[in-house]
Every structure is written in C-alpha cells, then in structure tokens.
C-alpha cells in the first residue's frame, strides 16, 4: 500500500486513473467515480490534477478489502476514449502480448 508520506509526494503530469488488483481473484481493476472498482478501464474515474489524484488514491487505498496495491497510473485520452498510458498498463489492461500456447 502507498504510505501517506509517499502519497504526499505524488505529482501527475497528465490524465491518470487509480488501478489495483481485486483482492479475491487478483484481477486488474480501476477505481470508479462511484467509489467502487471495475475491470473496465473505460469505467475508471479520470483525474487531471495532483490534488485530485492524491484524493482518489487515498480513498481507493482505504478499501483494502476490495482491492490491493492501489497506485496511480497514466492514461491517454484520444477522442473521448481512455487508453493505457504505458506498456505495463497496456499489458495489465489488455492481457498478455504473447500467444498462450505453443504455436
């Protein structure tokens, strides 16, 4: 969990979301504006200031039973569509970049 001290230092440079892993099954989830979790990035609450990001993270991290390891992740907004902001988040959101089974 992100400690309060670390949370204070958080600065974001563009649109961001809060993501974590759902506690009971580990699935990737995003914090929604309704204070819940969703597996769809399109449901995520999007923040664009550091203050909002800190607030969203604090609220998310408090729900330790729902999801674990909450952190802020960058996203890209293209024509109203939310996309993961880096490769790691792309993989978390879209799944493996490889074929599961031997070709």
């Amino acid at each position: 969990m992100t400690s309060p001290l670390e949370q204070k230092k958080i600065r974001i440079t563009g649109p961001s979301v809060v993501t974590a892993n759902r506690t009971w099954d580990g699935a990737v989830v995003y914090r929604t504006a309704q204070q819940g979790w969703s597996t769809a990035l399109s449901d995520a609450a999007i923040v664009s200031t550091s203050d909002d990001a800190r607030a969203l993270l604090a609220e998310s991290a408090a729900d330790d039973v729902g999801a674990v390891g909450a952190y802020i992740a960058p996203v890209e907004l293209k024509g109203g569509v939310v996309k993961p902001g880096n490769l790691r988040e792309h993989i978390r959101s879209k799944g493996l970049t490889i074929d599961l089974l031997p070709a």
């Binding site: 969990m1 892993n21 506690t23 009971w24 099954d25 580990g26 699935a27 990737v28 330790d64 039973v65 674990v68 390891g69 790691r88 993989i91 978390r92 799944g95």
Partner: peptide
C-alpha cells in the same frame, strides 16, 4: 480472514508469501 477484512494486506502478505503466493500484474 483476509477476504472478510479481518486481516489487512499488510498483515496477510507475509502469510501468503510463506505459501508461495505472489501478486503479479494480472493475478495472484
């Protein structure tokens, strides 16, 4: 106890690691 919220992740982490359970990008 973890799923009911009786144990926090911080308390549970050591216990799950003792049983070979890590948290990865998409799942445990």
């Amino acid at each position: 106890r973890r799923l009911s919220g009786e144990l926090t992740e911080d308390e549970f982490k050591m216990l799950r690691l003792q049983n070979g359970v890590y948290l990865q990008l998409h799942a445990y």
